[in-house]
Design a protein around this nucleic acid. Structure first.
Lengths: 144, 144
DNA sequence: ACGCCACGTTGTACTATACAACTAGTTCAC
DNA sequence: GTGAACTAGTTGTATAGTACAACGTGGCGT
């Protein structure tokens, strides 16, 4: 095995280990908003509202999955639907004031946890790590 | 927001994006062995056998979860149990020949996919990326 | 106007997971 | 040596997240 193989092996193992744990960790830290709901709600907030179909496309989720996730978020009062007046099939989804508030709290607390984990990293390393992740994810998206 | 904040934000987003997709991607590529079964089987192979309890501890899974995963792997003929003669509560788990074979195939194919994704990276970058991931995961383990 | 497409919901099924209650073996204190 | 406390693993039950297929409804092109 070359050194290159070793590195690839490690990346594979560590990414896998991370993936296995992420959901559970997120659930433990934020019982009020799962990793998925958080991601969807954050996207709505970021995009200033969008359609369920857009969420599904963006996150490679089935539309039925998104539909149920949104239904749950609506039931919690975190999301509201606005029927598009120009096309009555379309619902534009927006965070409610309460949803935005909860999102802000969870975001702050997640950010804090990440900062703790990365506290003793040099800025230069953080920078490189961030760009490697972006590059890696882009490649995964491109190659399936 | 400082540059440091930016980097942390990016790392957070990209790690989250990755986590969301990993399971589905793994399932699509290897329907015969889910991400979890793969991980457990690989650990057995690596450790030359171990107990269910060890798997649970190592992967932060409930023992019931491991019990069912192992039951499934046994049903597929990929794992066998050997009762510890010194302690009849204990089952030492081992991959079967067939299990080892399937594991080898999946490992090879996963490795290939990772190599493709990382094909155009310089060795130096791979090396750094690998060590960043190890460092990150260790920190997460330490801090919950 | 008819047929097709787009958006979303609902029925169904499956996987991964946790927690609690349980069985069965082991060890230790006395 | 016997009973209490512990450990390993299984099973019952519940929940979340997900996909696929069938469906209803609304809009659009010819």
């Amino acid at each position: 095995m070359t050194h290159r193989d070793d590195s690839v092996e490690t990346i594979q193992q560590e990414m896998t280990a991370f993936a296995r744990r992420a959901r559970a960790t997120a659930a433990r830290m934020h019982p009020e908003l799962s990793l998925v709901s958080y991601t969807l709600l954050a996207h709505l907030d970021d995009q200033q509202g969008c359609r369920a179909t857009d969420l599904a496309a963006h996150y490679y989720l089935d539309k039925s999955t998104v539909s149920r996730q949104i239904a749950a978020l609506e039931k919690l009062g975190f999301v509201e639907r606005r029927i598009d007046p120009d096309d009555h099939r379309v619902q534009v989804l927006h965070p409610t004031a309460e949803g935005a508030q909860v999102l802000a709290n969870v975001t702050a607390s997640r950010r804090k946890a990440f900062h703790e984990r990365l506290a003793d990293w040099r800025e230069e390393d953080l920078d490189r790590f961030a760009s490697y992740l972006v590059r890696y994810n882009a490649a995964q998206e491109r190659l399936g």
